[in-house]
Design a protein around this nucleic acid. Structure first.
Length: 503
RNA sequence: UCCCCGAUAGCUCAAUUGGUAGAGCGAGCGGCUGUUAACCGCUAGGUCGUAGGUUCGAAUCCUACUCGGGGAGCCA
């Protein structure tokens, strides 16, 4: 057989009432006495293929009946519209070829724990949820490149082996470079600034490495980041660039991945709200909010909601357990058992929230001007908004030496974070860069850096310094936010986490 | 690094106050012409994470370790 003649499931609408060949993997098989319903996946989608006994060879019919999940096969038949079928089309099979049999595929259509799925990551990627997220990620990445390419930016690939220790050497991975210590890049920014002085508007896009010991759903040790850098730009221009950029990504994902968003249970209504302008707060305003009555009420109200949720879950749980003890139908018993497992996970999540709420409320109430905003503080701010929020003008002690001191208030720098709404937190961090040679040297010294280590970087301020700045956007966090996926490890094919790498 | 939770069949979970280890799914076989995580019957499948301790008796209690999950600091 010539597989080049096969048709993709995504294109079935163009082949209704025609006989075509599909090639893919057996996603599921529900055989009956004289009819079988095969769900085939081919990378472009799912299609139900119906085989009636007598329409194909009897031996083949029996063989397919015992075919394991994920066996590969090519199936030929006539396409028809069918409401009851996934995707709206199905195939009436006329012939089939088993390409390779699969036995005892570990990932069954039932529930699995995250550890098991991660250990089987190479197979887990075939699952529907992962497939959907992969498609969304692809659109996010494609939109990133498209946005900058169409807006006069030039791509500059910055090095992965870097000589610049940057802000904090402890969060960098050290590598032995022929006997010399070098580090894996944490940001392309310093290199990118030099490129911006050549090309004006530039961006880099690639993997980034951080040796932070962060064990949370928002951290990876290797993640993808895109960083634009613009010459002759101030904070206002950067904020506008960032909000247009993020809105463009959201618009494209909505356009191209609506079906995937629906399947993963994303909040489409919220995504549709992602349009400029985003909210803007200064750090000082954020601190006022955190320490003021608004946050206190907000947290108290939320705690009450959590308690309510907990009560509801517990009531449902005891009701289900009561049902399980009585005499009920077998199928009902199973359904309840599945719900009990699910509901117990929800319960422990709500309990964690209840436990954390007072701590976070306390942290917010005790917040002192001058500290960096903590994860929980950002979460609170972002939960109060239904659109992304920019927080600008952080105290300079909490920020990197290269950020430009605000000339109208020298306690703060001209930087910004963009927080995704509904508690997703930081997606973007950026700043205007200090362009005055003397101020920059003084700042570097204050922070304990030796200016001579930054010779080439300082040269940018010696030879025609201009106001400029940029930001970095985390790809996995963006995907997680848009796909409503809790953990960013699900948003990259092969995640690298603190002290854990599966394959 | 710190705090909380967990580890029982291939998978997801049960096992009342310490008393002979269970269910569903998955696998295998059979039945069923419209299934959507189908259903019905039968079969196989376990050194209860590891090591020690308490006890007449431990999956259950205690200690240590290993592994995993969640959270904190820091960040995209």
């Amino acid at each position: 057989m010539n597989y080049a003649d096969r048709v993709l499931i995504a294109d079935l609408k163009r082949h209704v009432e025609k006989e075509v060949m599909l090639a893919g993997w057996l996603y599921r098989n529900r055989p009956s006495g004289k009819v079988q319903f095969l769900t085939l996946r081919d990378g472009s989608g799912l299609c139900q293929c119906v085989i009636e006994k007598g329409k194909i060879d009897d031996d083949l019919f029996d063989k397919i009946k015992h075919l394991g999940q994920e066996s590969s096969l090519a199936i030929t038949g006539t396409i028809r519209e069918e409401q009851r079928s996934v995707g709206g089309y199905e195939m009436a099979v006329t012939s089939a070829e088993i390409i390779s049999e699969s036995k005892d595929y570990p990932i069954t259509p039932k529930a699995h724990g995250i550890d098991f799925l991660m250990k089987n990551r190479h197979l887990h990627l075939r699952s529907q949820r992962q497939w959907n997220i992969s498609r969304i990620r692809h659109t996010v990445v494609d939109s990133i490149r498209r946005f900058f390419n169409d807006d006069g930016f030039t791509l500059v690939d910055t090095p992965i082996f870097t000589t610049m220790a940057g802000e904090d050497a402890s969060s960098l991975f050290e590598v032995d470079y022929f006997g010399e210590p070098l580090h894996l890049t944490q940001t392309g920014q310093l290199y990118l600034e030099t490129a911006a002085m050549s090309l004006g508007k530039v961006y880099c896009f690639g993997p980034t490495f951080r040796a932070e010991k962060s064990k949370t759903r928002r951290h990876l040790t290797e993640f993808w980041m895109v960083e634009p850098e613009v010459a002759f730009a101030g904070l206002k221009e950067l904020l506008e660039l960032a909000e247009n950029f993020v809105s463009f990504i959201a618009k494209n994902v909505l356009e191209k991945n609506r079906a995937q968003l629906e399947q993963v249970g994303a909040n489409i209504e919220l995504l549709e709200k992602i349009k400029p302008p985003f909210y803007r707060l200064t750090y000082s305003q954020a601190v006022d909010i955190l320490t003021g009555p608004k946050t206190k009420d907000f947290m108290a109200k939320q705690l009450e909601e959590f308690h309510q949720q907990k009560k509801q879950i517990e009531e449902r749980l005891s009701q289900l357990e009561k049902e399980q003890k009585g005499s009920i139908k077998q199928w009902k018993r199973e359904k309840n058992a599945a719900e009990i497992i699910e509901i117990k996970a929800d319960l422990s999540e709500v309990e964690t929230k209840i436990e954390n709420n007072p701590k976070h409320a306390q942290l917010a109430a005790d917040f002192k001007w001058g500290k960096d905003l903590g994860g929980s503080d950002e979460t609170i701010i972002s939960m109060m908004h239904d659109k992304p929020v920019f927080v600008t003008h952080y105290p300079k002690e909490a920020k990197a030496f290269y950020m430009k001191t605000d000339r109208s208030d020298d306690r703060v720098v001209e930087n910004f974070d963009m927080l995704a709404p509904e508690g997703f937190g930081e997606i973007i961090g950026g700043s205007v860069r200090e362009d005055d040679y003397d101020v920059l040297v003084a700042r570097a010294k204050d922070m304990g850096f030796k200016p001579e280590d930054y010779d080439w970087y300082l040269d940018l301020r010696k030879y025609g310094s201009v106001p400029h700045g940029g930001f970095g956007l985390g790809v996995e966090r963006t995907v997680a936010w848009m796909a409503s996926e809790k953990h960013i490890r699900q948003c990259i094919a092969f995640p690298r986490m603190m002290d854990k790498v599966y394959i």
